[in-house]
């Protein structure tokens, strides 16, 4: 079953002579539970694609459907609800809220939604993410790898339809990178979490179900690895 359908997605920044087309007529579908790696050189449009899927940015034209629903027919306010319920975003630079501790950061999307936090899920995730004993630390008291694990926890906490990660290991050493990718893969395998990861790392790309290569804002190749 296709959970994500992208059709003729185009994104142009600026206008007139200075206009830059970041994405040009990209169409793509992702099945539920699929682990997709997106690769491409710098400026190929990877991050733009991810931000459009995550409802962080709006496209110039084209549609993105998640669970059959058109993402961009929503108002800004509805889009905020979409971001906290339907997607989980992980960035290279973590982007945690500096004044909240680990648990508060992780629970933020749930709390903003006004739903109760599932205690079993929270403790389970803290254990899996190796953040036990760090529950009440602020981000600046954590290492980079720990911060990224909190970011992953935040992305997974709401059991979103799709987790979008933008070079999640780009800022980490190899040991931490392996751990982070391990966690993401585990959520994919054990929980059937749909996963779209942008990466420069060949190993990461090879561990995915499918590798989509972008070039100048277009899909250059779409290879299934297994």
């Amino acid at each position: 079953m296709d959970i994500l359908q992208i059709e003729h997605l185009t994104k142009t920044y600026g206008s007139g002579d200075t206009a830059v087309t970041a994405l040009s007529d990209v169409s793509l579908t992702v099945a539920a539970g699929e682990f997709v790696a997106i690769i491409g050189s710098s400026g190929s449009g990877k991050s733009t694609l991810l931000h459009l899927i995550g409802g962080v940015d709006r496209p110039t034209s084209g549609t993105v459907r998640l669970n059959g629903e058109d993402v961009f027919r929503r108002s800004d306010e509805e889009l905020a609800v979409f971001r906290r319920r339907e997607v989980g975003l992980v960035y290279q630079f973590y982007n945690l809220v500096p004044v909240l501790d680990v648990v508060e950061n992780m629970c933020l999307p749930v709390l903003m939604d006004g739903r109760p936090v599932n205690e079993a899920r929270l403790t389970d995730m803290l254990r899996v993410l190796g953040l036990e004993g760090r529950e009440h630390h602020l981000p600046n008291q954590l290492s980079g790898g720990q911060q990224q694990r909190v970011a992953i926890g935040r992305a997974l906490m709401n059991a979103p339809a799709v987790v979008l990660a933008d070079e999640p290991t780009g800022n980490l050493d190899s040991r931490n990178s392996a751990e982070i990718m391990g966690l993401l893969r585990r959520s994919n395998r054990e929980l059937g979490q749909t996963l779209i990861v942008i990466t420069h790392d060949e190993d990461v790309a090879l561990s995915a179900d499918r590798v989509v290569a972008l070039e100048d804002g277009r899909v250059a190749s779409d290879t299934r690895t297994r």
């Binding site: 800004d76 306010e77 905020a80 609800v81 979409f82 906290r84 999307p109």
Partner: peptide, 9 residues
């Protein structure tokens, strides 16, 4: 970060 985590206007 707050907005991307789903905080509305």
């Amino acid at each position: 970060a707050l907005r991307s985590a789903g905080m509305g206007g």
